[in-house]
Simulated assay, not measured.
Amino acid sequence: MVRASINGVILAESDKTVVVEGNHYFPPDSVKKDLFSTSNTHTTCPWKGEASYYNATIGGKTEVHDVAWYYPQPKEKANNIKDYVAFYKNKVVLEE
């Protein structure tokens, strides 16, 4: 089971993550979406496509900006992680 948390609050947990480039991508249904707000940040990966970002919003307060990213419309080679969510290891506690 892999778990991502901030200050003891679990953001996501799953035993079905997909590891890509050393990052655990959590299935969409394993992520507590009520703890996130949409960020305006977007980046582009040459082989995965454009990434969108989430802020961690706990108790109505944004705790961490751009804590996680996902690919809503990935390129063909990354279709297996469509909408899966990965977290910055320096912004969350990641337990493997």
Results as ranks from 00 to 15, higher is better:
residue 73 Q to C: 06
residue 25 Y to T: 08
residue 16 K to S: 12
residue 56 A to I: 14
residue 45 C to D: 07
residue 81 I to R: 07
residue 75 K to E: 12
residue 2 V to F: 08
residue 8 G to Y: 13
residue 11 L to S: 02
residue 90 N to E: 15
residue 76 E to L: 10
residue 48 K to V: 00
residue 87 F to T: 08
residue 3 R to T: 13
residue 96 E to P: 06
residue 33 K to A: 06
residue 65 H to Q: 12
residue 53 Y to F: 11
residue 65 H to M: 09
residue 38 T to H: 14
residue 30 S to T: 05
residue 60 G to R: 12
residue 11 L to H: 05
residue 74 P to C: 06
residue 68 A to P: 03
residue 96 E to Q: 13
residue 47 W to E: 11
residue 72 P to Q: 08
residue 89 K to S: 05
residue 96 E to D: 14
residue 53 Y to Q: 04
residue 68 A to S: 08
residue 45 C to T: 00
residue 17 T to A: 05
residue 42 H to P: 01
residue 64 V to P: 02
residue 68 A to I: 03
residue 32 K to A: 10
residue 47 W to D: 12
residue 44 T to A: 14
residue 4 A to L: 02
residue 67 V to L: 01
residue 37 S to F: 08
residue 35 L to F: 13
residue 44 T to E: 15
residue 92 V to C: 04
residue 66 D to N: 12
residue 73 Q to W: 00
residue 3 R to N: 11
residue 52 S to K: 15
residue 12 A to M: 05
residue 59 G to Y: 04
residue 18 V to G: 07
residue 27 P to H: 03
residue 20 V to T: 04
residue 56 A to P: 08
residue 90 N to M: 07
residue 61 K to R: 11
residue 30 S to H: 09
residue 79 N to E: 15
residue 53 Y to L: 05
residue 80 N to A: 11
residue 61 K to C: 11
